[in-house]
Design a protein around this nucleic acid. Structure first.
Length: 429
RNA sequence: GGAAGGGUGGCUGAGUGGUUAAAGGCACUCGACUCGAAAUCGAGAGUAGGGUCAAACCUACCGUGGGUUCGAAUCCCACCCCUUCCGCCA
């Protein structure tokens, strides 16, 4: 969430920076300012009363010890109780209201973020490789999967429902090979050209509400989450949630930064109201695998870390010989908590379209403030960390791109060189 | 799921309803002593909110939330977490 002190100090600047986003946030900012002023007023009154009571109560203690009569002074302070109770309820309510309001206000876009109203205004920053030239009409991954029995949508629908799949035989092995290849790539010792250096995490797949509030999925996007109400737990929509929250409510040492984590998890999303759900094969499903990259760093480093995070995700696509492009999200298309985001889109010839396989974002201190994630700076002061994350990469769509880009005229699929040790064969079919 | 025990600062560990402004110890920071260090001595040091140019200062925080009381770490209630044992279980 945004810093209330900053909103109080420069409300017009905050409003101006939020103006680039979808929706009008002016009223929301005014509401939080009004609430903040009422809250502080009530809080000051309450504290004044508490101070008086503490002083008098201490006097009573001293007098009793001295054997003096205290009935008069006790009667005097007895009346404090009701006023304090009322003021306490008032401040608690205002405090809750203020937090709720702040949780509902998105992050301010970074100054460098291109201004625009929707995805059409997202600039393409660069591309790698080129669309492969086929001497035949390239097939969709659905046809290729059916030909080689790589996955089974019908039976997955029978046992779970639509928009689920079941990988089978070599298809399941390919999925597993990709997971291992991605994790190995990100966790190997870091080098400037090859990336790496992330610590592998295998987190819980069910998380509590506090964790989801920390990374902004709650309270605003509750309808996208699978929920187990009896236990107060939610299925993770992305490893970002458990991994970023590892250090929630912690004060880290500056020397620990940056922390770089990678995690493979399945991701569960209700996709309520989403177009194309269950009709485009592996492209949009309720459950998909993903290898996530998460960084927690010093504020001065977050922009540089965003560049290297994106580069680390790109290396995967390069290693697999897949053409992709980098899109920067404009202010109107930016995610709720993000201040700057790059999307990586891989070419899928069977779809004739680019597919988003990674979204790399710098959240600055927005998530850190929500989860009280701080570090002690060189002056011994607590500062909020900056957090980042990006897919490295989403598996299902990478799988689509792999099949569709490396398909051969005879319908077989060539496995890219770096993946062969993991898959155990040079091709499928 | 059942039973018992326990949750106090960075760690450890006291704490009969009223100088708890949380003892003592360890670790830490600064200073003194020293050529330097160790030892010793002295001082300081938590988090959050309010307040201030900055301070001073005020308030809250002893697992969490309620309650009793003029006053709660301390008494009462509910819940959460940890440990051990039993049950169940990959």
């Amino acid at each position: 969430m945004l810093d209330i002190a900053l909103i109080r100090k420069t409300p017009d600047e905050i409003k101006a920076r939020l103006a680039g986003r979808a929706g009008d946030w002016t009223a929301q900012i005014d509401a939080v300012l009004r609430c903040d002023s009422q809250r502080r007023q009530a809080e000051t009154k309450l504290q004044q009363l508490q101070a008086d009571r503490n002083r008098i109560s201490k006097e009573i203690g001293a007098k009793k010890k001295a054997g003096e009569d205290t009935s008069e002074i006790e009667a005097q302070v007895r009346g404090f109780g009701e006023d304090m109770k009322r003021l306490n309820e008032e401040t608690t309510a205002l405090d809750t209201e203020q937090r709720d309001l702040l949780l509902g206000i998105p992050n301010v876009p970074h100054e460098q973020c291109p201004v625009g109203t929707d995805a059409a205004a997202n600039p393409e920053l660069r591309a790698w490789g080129a669309k492969p030239a086929f001497t035949f009409q390239p097939k969709s991954h659905l046809d290729l999967g059916a030909k080689h029995s790589l996955f089974d949508f019908d039976r997955a629908t029978k046992i779970a429902g639509p928009a689920f799949t079941c990988y089978t035989g070599p298809g399941a092995r390919l999925e597993r090979a990709l997971v291992n290849f991605l994790l190995d790539t990100h966790t190997r010792p870091h080098t400037q050209t090859q990336g790496g250096g992330y610590t592998e995490i295998a987190p819980p797949l069910l998380v509590n509400a506090e964790a989801l509030i920390g990374t902004t999925q709650l309270p605003k996007f509750a309808d996208q989450l699978y929920h187990c109400p009896e236990d107060g737990l939610y299925l993770v929509p992305t490893a970002e949630v458990p991994v970023t929250n590892l250090h929630r409510d912690e004060i880290l040492k500056m020397e620990q930064l940056p922390l770089r984590y990678t995690a493979y998890t399945p991701c569960f999303r209700r996709e309520a109201g989403a177009a194309g759900l269950g009709t485009r094969g592996l492209i949009r499903m309720h459950q998909f695998d993903k290898v996530e990259l998460v960084k927690i760093c010093h504020p001065s480093q977050s922009m540089a870390e965003l560049e290297s995070l994106t580069a680390d995700a790109e290396k995967i696509l390069q290693a697999l010989g897949l053409h992709y492009r980098i899109i920067e999200l404009c202010t109107g298309d930016l995610g709720f908590g993000s201040t700057k985001t790059y999307d990586i889109e891989v070419w899928a010839p069977g779809q004739g379209a680019y597919l988003e396989v990674s979204s790399c974002s710098n959240f600055a201190d927005y998530q850190a403030r929500r989860m009280a994630l701080r570090f002690k700076d060189e002056h011994g002061k607590n500062q909020f960390c900056h957090t980042l994350n990006g897919s490295g990469t989403a598996l299902a769509r990478l799988y689509v791109a792999l099949l569709e880009n490396h398909q051969q005229p005879d319908g077989s699929i060539t496995i890219p060189e770096p993946l062969r040790p993991y898959f155990g064969a040079e091709k499928i079919g």
